[in-house]
Design a protein around this nucleic acid. Structure first.
Lengths: 393, 393
DNA sequence: TTCGTTTGCACAAACGTTTGCGATAGCTAA
DNA sequence: TTAGCTATCGCAAACGTTTGTGCAAACGAA
């Protein structure tokens, strides 16, 4: 018989062993018909054992007030007397109190975190937009949580799902190339979490949107190429379903029409912006009986691929073929000849996206989604200058 | 007399008005000596009114078990019977249950968020490392919260402070240029939150570190320049206190010594990596009676500034001056002549940094900080090739 | 005085999940 | 049978903060 006393009757002779539960010896008191295990200490703290941080409760105990008073004092609530406030604040500093933002967010149901989904981080274009978002967010005391979709629709959906699980106060998204359906966005439209689209926007949803001057920019660029004497202007665009594809194609067509040039479907390359797909189309064009005399890409990255490939083939740029891009990638300034491009003010696109989010949460119920077009300007460099003395604008 | 009944004695005739409290009429019952205000509904939910998300409690009520059972069922705990588990899981799907990660983290005192502090996002070099971190983190189910220090020490300190307020499970940091003291890191060393340094590391702390082959890379590059016939090799480095400055300078000196070349302090440029500071030093060098015949920059960005500036001055590269960089910035491949550089496997640096964090949390108490050196390789391009037929390695 | 008002603080619920342990019904082996 | 076990589930604390409201004391005016 074990020498253990029953928790109820305090007798030892009626206690029997009663198996194990979760690895601990269990006992049974016949008289009380009572099962129990031994445990000496109280409830143990669980989870990773982190060094104890000073809490509001610690301060409250130390100074002899309630924790609500401490909470209000630290937040300068009017209900607390000046003296109490000062005493509490001083003690908080002395005890190195750091508010547990986590508990705070939990209580307020507000995280002060914005989720951002972008195709990837390595592309300068996207990282610059991201930087713009970050700066504005920081100004409002918000943190930014970033997910990369890697241009995969599935990853994008997964990321949204993860972010939306009560993490974020808002979502800023630039869709992946693959994304053609927007159900994953619509599902979250009624949850009260503001969603802002930027760069690659979705026209099907009632969300705020930020984009470049896609139509005007493409039109201006095509105008410029025509002015340089180009008559067969090839166009590198993205997938059919992409907004910027549609809009920049429209601007291009508008310009052609204006100048009485024929639109040739064969000069359009729907790509996924990869090196491979660009080269394929350039090869195709070069094999045509009537070669294009200009290539306009709606992405600087692809324009640079084209430019380098043409140089590799010893085809003179701009003499034989002009090359123009869109987006003002820093690399366009370094390559030779310099790449003519449209400066779409990438940083400002990011900043505006974040700003629209704050507009929305600050205006509350009666907010109507806004669409902002960020003004840009054409930058003319060597890759399109045929008759000299054209200055950078 | 107001027609209001006392909450205690239920009489109306003894009740008097008793001022206003927080904008609401207050009453007082003479007989009970009891103050009260009227309020009809119960406690209202506060904070931003978000659409109600299904919680564990909802499921528990719907199916008639306790919430602990639901929690365990969803996490596949052994204590729950197969049938119950299946029923709960099915209902969870049906009710579109999304676990509140926030409450989860709060209860477990673990956020599954890694904080990352980098100088900025626009620089390709950093955004690539960041991407590496992200990919590894995602593999482990962690999210990444990013802060930019903008090369400012104060911002860096502020960011750490903010992140450390119970937000993050770990901190990955690449110090700002200004950072020369590491007190802000040491303060957090004993909080049980793993800290990993990458790229710009801190040698004063017992933290895990990831860096490139700084000494060997600089030495190899200098060797290469010497092999090209260069005898006066100028060096662009960062501030004195920076680890990569010290180590790459050391590698450079090692090579000079090996080849019997004199070390000339005048050929060393301590910069802050800005365009301006680079140009200043290049001007200084060009004005010297004995001009350098090579410029080696420990940052590709500065090497590119140099290269472009020399081209602008019509100084032939590499014929008059060779230019070499470090870091394998994609731009080095595009510029003409191509920039010789040291490929430090930036992506892998980021990946390894994240991996070291997971190594640490997985190994628990008995973890010893590790230092990993990421192997790199020299990439030889036109900017340093003087006697032809040197192949890319 | 005495009623009416303000000031300053305390109490406790609420947030959603995890988890240590209690507890019972039913099962198994002696 | 019955003592000893196991399988399943419930209860309630704990996490740290915010916030609606109760309430006593001080204060002011009639």
């Amino acid at each position: 018989m074990p020498r253990v006393k029953c928790n109820k009757c305090d007798k030892a002779e009626t206690v029997l062993r009663s198996g194990f539960v979760r690895g601990k010896q269990r006992f049974y008191c016949k008289e009380c018909n009572y099962h129990f295990t031994l445990h000496h200490e109280g409830r143990k703290p669980q989870g990773r054992q982190i060094v104890h941080q000073t809490t509001i409760i610690d301060i409250a105990k130390a100074i002899g007030v309630s924790n609500s008073t401490v909470s209000r004092a630290l937040r300068n609530h009017a209900d607390i007397s000046f003296e109490t406030k000062e005493a509490i604040k001083a003690l908080a500093v002395k005890m190195d109190y750091q508010p547990n933002l986590f508990a705070q967010s939990f209580a307020k149901k507000q995280t002060n975190i914005i989720g951002v989904i972008i195709p990837n981080l390595e592309t300068t274009f996207f990282s610059i937009m991201l930087s713009g978002i970050q700066h504005v967010a920081n100004r409002y005391g918000y943190k930014v949580m970033i997910c990369q979709s890697n241009e995969s629709h599935k990853t994008e959906v997964d990321n949204i799902q993860a972010l939306m699980r009560n993490w974020i106060d808002g979502l800023l998204i630039c869709h992946s190339l693959e994304t053609a359906s927007y159900e994953h966005i619509k599902v979250h439209m009624n949850k009260g979490i503001p969603i802002v689209h930027f760069h690659r926007v979705c026209m099907e949803t009632e969300t705020s949107k930020v984009m470049a001057e896609d139509v005007k920019g493409a039109e201006e660029m095509t105008d410029h190429l025509v002015a340089q004497g180009c008559k067969r202007i090839a166009l590198i665009i993205g997938p059919h379903h992409l907004g910027i594809t549609v809009k920049r194609l429209y601007g291009y067509q508008k310009s052609l029409k204006k100048h009485g040039l024929r639109f040739d479907e064969d000069l359009i390359a729907y790509t996924d912006f990869t090196h491979q797909s660009v080269i394929m189309h350039v090869d195709r064009w070069l094999a045509m009986p009537e070669r294009p005399d200009a290539v306009f890409s709606i992405s600087d990255k692809c324009a640079i691929h084209t430019l380098r490939y043409l140089k590799q083939l010893r085809i003179p740029v701009p003499a034989a073929i002009c090359v123009a891009g869109f987006g003002n990638d820093p690399m366009g300034e370094v390559i030779e000849p310099g790449l003519t491009t449209y400066n779409s003010n990438t940083l400002q696109v990011g900043e505006t996206a974040a700003q629209l989010f704050f507009d929305q949460i600050l205006s509350g119920e009666n907010f109507k989604p806004k669409t902002k077009i960020i003004k840009g300007n054409i930058i003319i460099r060597g890759s399109t200058i045929r008759h000299g003395n054209v200055q950078d604008l």
